[in-house]
């Protein structure tokens, strides 16, 4: 059964279709890529899936539930987390706090416990901190837990954003250009890391990426978007040889990847 099934998704901004008749199906454990030229509507798809935008038309079934019309936080609570193309960290907070905030939905103690400092406050805070440090450890950020997020180097900010998304304990993780601004070495490490977290946390991952080596190397299936419509869909090999895709990319990047 599909974890995510999107049917006829359409988003119109003031008469202009950013996404039209978008269909996609993700099965548990898959690592799928969403590629396309700039302005093809990839990030808009993410914003529609996570409830930041409301679709003009279409349905989104997530875990057998229609999530159209739900607020972003409700969708996250149902098991979908994401990162942003233009990194959106809580920049004045510590690295640790960034991750602890994502853990918020799993905390059970109420306002009274917090204010009166009852036992379960200490117990849960301690557990949350321990878990957060574990996540930071995976991304090799645990030694920087007390640093202010905005002071991290760019690559570490990207990694922190993924760590934060993971801390929300999602079943589906949406990564929006995770390798943007990274050098080939870092990109390669990131690719391995993404595969590893998929296996380790039994996640399903949908990623937007411009770096073809990463997409072709990591994803099992790829959807290609152009002008808000899917123009091709298949395995990396099929995509590489698809004439429409080559045309969309002027034959460059895909063929050489």
């Amino acid at each position: 059964m599909a974890l995510l099934a999107v049917n006829n998704l359409t988003k119109v901004f003031g008469g202009l279709s950013a996404v039209s008749d978008f269909n996609i199906e993700l099965h548990p454990g898959e690592l799928v890529g969403l590629i396309g030229p700039n302005g093809a509507g990839k990030t808009t798809v993410f914003n529609l899936l996570t409830g930041v935008y409301e679709p003009t038309e279409g349905t989104i079934q997530f875990n057998h539930e229609n999530i159209v019309g739900l607020k972003p936080y409700e969708i996250t609570q149902r098991g979908m987390a994401r990162t942003f193309q233009n990194i959106r960290l809580f920049s004045n907070l510590s690295v640790l706090d960034n991750v602890r905030i994502a853990y918020h939905t799993h905390v059970k103690y109420g306002l009274t416990s917090a204010v009166m400092r009852l036992g379960n406050y200490y117990k849960e805070e301690e557990e949350m901190t321990r878990k957060a440090i574990e996540f930071l450890h995976i991304f090799n950020l645990d030694r920087k837990k007390d640093e202010i997020a905005k002071n991290l180097p760019y690559g570490e900010q990207r990694r922190l954003e993924i760590a934060r998304a993971l801390a929300a304990k999602p079943r589906l993780l949406l990564l929006d250009e995770p390798a943007a601004g990274m050098n080939p070495q870092e990109t390669h490490e990131l690719m391995n890391l993404i595969k590893w977290i998929r296996d380790e946390f039994k996640l399903t991952i949908l990623l937007i990426e411009h770096d073809m080596s990463l997409v072709m190397g990591a994803c099992e299936r790829i959807y290609v978007l152009e002008y808000g419509m899917i123009i091709a869909h298949g395995t990396p090999e099929e995509i590489k040889s698809n004439p429409r895709v080559i045309e969309a990319y002027l034959g460059e990047e895909v063929a050489h990847a």
């Binding site: 972003p72 609570q77 809580f90």
Partner: peptide, 20 residues
């Protein structure tokens, strides 16, 4: 965690919302 939720809104409301 409740206070941190408030602070996260100050830092980035959209990110806070997508963090649940």
């Amino acid at each position: 965690t409740h206070g941190r939720a408030c602070i996260s809104i100050r830092e980035d409301e959209i990110a806070a919302e997508t963090m649940g």
